[in-house]
Design a protein around this nucleic acid. Structure first.
Length: 582
RNA sequence: GCCAAAAUAGCUCAGGGGUAGAGCGGCUCACUCGUAAUGAGCAGGUCAAGGGUUCGAUUCCCUUUUUUGGCUCCA
């Protein structure tokens, strides 16, 4: 007998659960048109065209109905039928008829029946609802979804559910969701006073508060130092440019709807920048370039603005104004491969410095519509592939998934609870060097076209910050923590000693402050703990007498009456190592 | 942009056709404290905005804005 993998088994169970839900919805809402209902990660969904919109209370009713169906111990019966039989069977189900048309000639058409409910379906399913547990599923939410995912198609009502083998697994999953909620960067951003967004001042535009700005400064300082150390130069470029620039780059032709609208001045249209690259090209084209000058590696923390559709914004993760950790490499064809490998190595180094070690690559190749010589595409794509392989990364190929102007590598990291986030991107560009007529004079005295590579390692600082907050659940490692040390005198009799300790800590380059409120020590600790400050220094009679400190770590660990100097050294070492408290 | 839900104090939330409530936070005072909340008092709101229904709207209706969960998009 074939042993089914756990994954397949759960998928089957979830898919069957989707059928049970469809049966329940059809019983409760006669006349409903049903579309598709697959298993997905953690559960299932089914899309319906319902006689009326659903409200949240309906989920309870549907849940009860599903439980009633499950206890009926109905069998899932598979049958292979002909096309015309299927057409007759689903004559009132317009979406099923459309799906039927999409099944290729020669492929068999199968249906599954569950009680009164019959669905066009490839299967597989569990044998009977006996195998489903009515205490191991939960309907999660109602959402709109376009039929077949196309914006021009009608909007259907999608019901999402989660389903597991047993009640315990469901409970664990619900706990996981709670954990995710606790990590939500929007909540932590408020609680830790890191950033804010203001509807009255413009949606999708981020305000970095002092605490958030501290973290950003640390990230930026590290980023700049590493870029200089890796052969990059910094540039600064304007935030707006005349329409000439964007016509030449092609942005006005291809991406105008993604740009903030123009402003007119002195009979010219200016646009706020959605990308930094045309500006970097202006610097390149400012002089005649020789092959001896190349490669150029120019980096900029460039703030760009893009018009994201109203419904798509999400905290820091999807915003309208953001700062890319951008760089452009202008290289000769024979430098390309080494440069790509180097960018990838650098990228991995940067990500690992922030505690991300589980990294996967995605290689996107030439799409149908593309600019540039196919030979160059092949060369570039192979260079990207070799670079990935050289770094020993696991990768997937997205055939035809590249931008029209060049192939790319995206890197995705996994955070502390296993969620994937795309951060780095390395993209070839065969478009802009043409459009801006970029050249360099080669060894043989002729003018040639340089290769151009766009790359962002962290993506954007806003998005990266959001990911970091969720990754660390707000408990930043000391090198990033906005406040590293809270000095807590046990009563105001020790405020003076506390001030002298704070002053020593600051002299040592550490971020520290004292809590001189009239709260009790317990309350001060609680406050500091809730702010996830890595170190708490407790000062009372014992410490004052011995001229030492007692340390309470964020983790709960304690070290009593140690010398201030050795504490400082220890913190400095942790900061220098960019280590997390364990 | 589309579907649905939501918007009440800085935060979390209760309430409800007749002048607005709690906890936390803030401020003031008392307490002088040893590893996750000392006590008391005070202040704080055009109930998102605009329009309508009504004798009267924060409450009901409409529009707009924003937010949330999805869909689409993401150069």
């Amino acid at each position: 007998m074939r042993i089914m993998h756990e994954h397949d088994r759960l998928d089957t169970l979830r898919h069957s659960m989707a059928h049970v839900m469809a049966e329940a919805v059809l019983e409760l809402f006669p006349g409903t048109q049903i579309a598709i209902g697959p298993a997905i990660e953690n559960g299932f969904y089914y899309d319906f065209d319902l006689p009326r919109p659903l409200v949240n209370e309906d989920l309870e009713t549907i849940t009860e109905k599903m439980k009633a169906i499950i206890v009926r111990n109905l069998a899932f019966e598979r049958k292979v039928i002909t096309r015309s039989e299927a057409r007759e069977l689903f004559k009132d189900q317009v979406y099923k008829l459309e799906l039927l048309d999409a099944i290729e000639e020669g492929e068999e058409v199968s249906i599954y029946s569950l009680g009164e409910f019959t669905d066009l379906c490839r299967g597989p399913h569990v044998e009977s609802t006996k195998e489903l547990r009515s205490d191991a599923f939960k309907l999660m939410n109602i959402a709109g979804a376009y039929w077949r995912g196309k914006e021009t198609n009608p909007m259907l009502t999608r019901i999402y559910g989660t389903a597991w083998s047993n009640a315990k697994e469901l409970r664990l999953y619900m706990q996981h969701l709670e954990d995710v909620e606790k990590r939500d960067h929007r909540k932590l951003g408020r609680d830790l006073d890191l950033f804010s967004l203001h509807e009255e001042a413009g949606p999708g535009l981020v305000y970095w508060h002092p605490n958030g700005a501290r973290i950003r400064q640390e990230i930026e300082n590290f980023w700049r130092a590493e870029h200089y150390a890796n052969g990059y130069e910094m540039v600064y470029t304007p935030h707006i440019g005349k329409s000439w620039l964007w016509e030449t780059s092609g942005h006005l032709g291809f991406y105008k709807e993604g740009m903030y609208p123009s402003m007119e001045m002195d009979n010219a249209d200016y646009y706020i920048k959605p990308m930094n690259c045309p500006f970097h090209i202006m610097i390149y084209n400012n002089s005649k370039r020789s092959y001896r000058d190349l490669p150029f590696r120019w980096a900029e923390l460039g703030t760009v603005y893009r018009y994201e559709k109203a419904g798509t914004m999400h905290g820091l993760l999807r915003v309208r104004g953001f700062t890319q950790d951008d760089a452009h490499l202008f290289v000769t064809p024979d430098q390309m491969e080494e440069e790509i490998a180097e960018v990838l190595r650098f990228s991995l180094y940067m990500l690992k410095s922030f505690g991300f070690s589980d990294i996967a690559a995605y290689l996107s190749t030439r799409p149908e519509k593309a600019v540039g010589d196919p030979k160059r595409w092949d060369d570039a794509t192979e260079a990207l592939r070799r670079a990935i392989e050289k770094e020993g990364l696991s990768y997937e190929v997205d055939e035809g998934g590249g931008a029209f102007y060049g192939p790319k590598i995206d890197l995705k990291i996994k955070d502390a609870i296993g969620r994937e986030w795309q951060l780095s991107t390395v993209q070839f560009d065969f478009n802009e060097p043409e459009r801006f007529d970029m050249t360099f004079v080669d060894r043989d005295g002729t003018e040639k076209r340089p290769y151009m590579i766009h790359r962002a390692l962290l993506g954007s600082l806003e998005r990266f910050f959001g990911v970091l907050i969720e990754h660390y659940a707000g408990a930043f490692p000391p090198w990033l923590a906005p406040e590293q040390i809270k000095v807590i005198p046990v009563s105001d009799a020790y405020d003076e000693y506390a001030r002298s300790v704070v002053s020593e800590l600051k002299k040592a380059g550490l971020r520290a402050s004292g809590d001189y409120s009239d709260n009790r020590m317990n309350a001060k600790i609680r406050t500091a703990q809730n702010l996830k400050i890595p170190y708490m220094v407790i000062l009372g009679e014992r410490e004052k007498e011995s001229n030492g400190v007692s340390v309470r770590y964020r983790t709960g660990r304690q070290e009593n009456s140690i010398a201030l100097g050795s504490f400082i050294k220890q913190v400095q070492a942790t900061v220098a190592a960019k280590a997390q408290l364990s």
